[in-house]
């Protein structure tokens, strides 16, 4: 069953188009990573799903209903980011209690244990928390709410590495016990690789790729060696990334559609064939240039 469906969804702020006719479907109980460069419309897309903002054109269905101004979507979804707003008059403990009254699946015992694990003081106030602590508290609310659709927008902002790992682990463990549809946007793809099932890659306001993460890991290969032996393999193919190493050696990333025989041939020619990390690949895919930042420094 698909819980989120987008058809030719567009969103423009004033005249600037942020999302341009994107279409995709997200299946129930999948964990999907929403990946893309800054300003590509990840947050906008997630906010439309949560019903915060209105689509400009196209159609979006969340749980088969239009999310904007929809109580049904609101009770079945939660949107977590570092901008999550809590009344300054309430202590953290009271905020958890408030969340409990609103979210029918809220697990207070679980929330309290996470709360204690991360050393929160029940009497503190949300607006006095540091950036990382804010993110951690918001994440607790997001996980313990157990909403059928749980949306995390950059949930790990400001968290230190240990907390980030704890968060991903807590999310995965709770997901296994209570499967739900989860969307996470984050810059730290390499940390989330074990967590994600699908990747939704946005580029220039469009869906660039929407595939399982296992496919993404094998989607491309890297060829390294003397330029003269590497470059022929790239003929007629889209080069995702190219970088010169030393004087003559070069490294190229292309889509992995070479046959076994071709790969063997390449190896004989002295080309080193390496898998491409999903996180690296995402950087290459979302980049507008072939050589990354190095392009800035050549031919000056």
């Amino acid at each position: 069953m698909s819980v989120i469906e987008c058809r030719e969804l567009s969103k423009a702020y004033l005249r600037k188009k942020v999302l341009n006719q994107i279409s995709f479907t997200i299946e129930e109980n999948k964990i999907t990573g929403v990946i893309g460069r800054n300003g590509v419309g990840k947050t906008t897309l997630l906010k439309i799903m949560a019903g915060f903002t209105k689509e400009t054109s196209g159609e979006i269905r969340v749980l088969e209903q239009r999310p904007f101004n929809n109580l049904y979507t609101s009770v079945n979804s939660i949107f977590v980011d570092d901008q999550m707003s809590f009344p300054p008059a309430l202590q953290l403990q009271e905020l958890l209690e408030a969340a409990q009254t609103f979210y029918p699946n809220w697990d207070m015992d679980f929330a309290q244990r996470l709360f204690k694990y991360f050393n929160f003081d029940p009497k503190h106030y949300h607006n006095t928390l540091s950036k990382g602590r804010t993110s951690t508290f918001n994440a607790i609310v997001g996980i313990a709410a157990r909403c059928p659709i749980t949306i995390f927008d950059e949930p790990t902002t400001g968290m230190d590495e240990a907390v980030r790992k704890d968060f991903y682990r807590a999310l995965l463990k709770d997901y296994i016990d209570h499967p739900r549809t989860i969307l996470i946007s984050s810059h730290h793809l390499e940390e989330m690789e074990d967590l994600l099932e699908d990747v939704l890659l946005l580029k220039n306001g469009k869906v660039h790729l929407h595939i399982p993460i296992s496919d993404l890991k094998e989607w491309a290969i890297g060829l390294q060696g003397q330029a003269s032996s590497v470059l022929p393999w790239t003929e007629g193919k889209e080069v995702l990334y190219q970088n010169q190493i030393g004087l003559n050696a070069t490294y190229v990333v292309i889509k992995n559609d070479l046959s076994e025989a071709e790969l063997a041939q390449a190896r004989l020619n002295g080309v080193k064939i390496t898998p491409v990390h999903a996180s690296d690949l995402c950087i290459y895919l979302t980049s507008d240039t072939k050589g990354g930042i190095d392009d800035v420094f050549i031919n000056r």
């Binding site: 019903g51 915060f52 101004n69 929809n70 109580l71 609101s74 009770v75 949107f79 901008q83 999550m84 707003s85 809590f86 009344p87 408030a98 969340a99 609103f102 979210y103």
Partner: peptide
């Protein structure tokens, strides 16, 4: 804004 955002942290629509 801050006050309306408090609502949208939890369950709400604009009418409620």
């Amino acid at each position: 804004k801050p006050y309306r955002n408090h609502d949208f942290t939890f369950v709400t629509n604009r009418l409620s």
